[in-house]
Amino acid sequence: MNILKTTLSNIKSNKQLFFASVGTITTALSILGLFLFVYINLNSVLSFWNDQVQLIVYLDDEISSDEKKQLEKLFSSSSEVDSFRFVSREQAWEKFQLMFSEKSSFLKGMGFNPLPASYNLKIKPLPERLKSIQSLAEKLSQEGGVESVEYGEEWINRFETFMILMRVFLLALGALLCLGAVLIIANTVKLSVLSRKNEIELMLLTGATPGFIKFPFFLEGIFHGILGALISLSLMKGVHLYLVSRFQGSIETFGRGMDFQFIPMSFVMVIMLTSLLMGWLGSYLSLQQFLGAYKKL
């Protein structure tokens, strides 16, 4: 209780500095959090699209029924294929018209159906999904009656590379911002320590244990970190809620079931814990420096 009282009085006597420091930490964590937010949502888009990956086998218009049967047999025997569906030229045309109903007069004016028939293959969620799709696609494109085989491979590959880069960027940015935050906390706590120099000396003289002296300052540093984290997480939640209310409708046109993800609970815990550690480390550094002078005497 006494420790808490001392901590609060430390903060009170350095109010402006405390809030400046908390504000800076909030800003740093918010920047990091927003990037994390973007990353998590892009990642969820990736996994959403990954789940949607289909292999589309476009057929020659002159495909024979034997060749069709041969293909279907191949699909059934492939371990990668979960299910397959035949889409005739007419069905494809109907769907196409439905999707672009605004342009229907133009489409009707075309007078012929340019679309080929196809097989849509749903691929099982295997661990090496992309690779197995790739090899299956190669095998199928050799088959008779197959015009071409399509899947979003390149696009997904590029997206994955981008995500790896983003991860590296996030880690580097995170490390840099954390370092900055630690230094800011260290400086603020240092000023707090210096403003209590006489009191600390008196404590040392009277026989206070090092823990008794250090604890309020540790707590002060931890307050900085936790408060900064809480404010920035609240800000991020606000941004999340805004995005959901404003853009949820439009995002659903990209894919059914997609939504804006908030930073998962485990990340929230990591952010809180990191802030706590940053606060502790900041205080530790400034106390080591301050008390170090008395150790040398």
Partner: peptide, 22 residues
Amino acid sequence: NFSKLWQLRRHIGVVFQDYKLL
């Protein structure tokens, strides 16, 4: 060592010329 100094100082009261009151 530094972390044990309190054991010594609790046996000692010190008074200074400049009082050192808070």
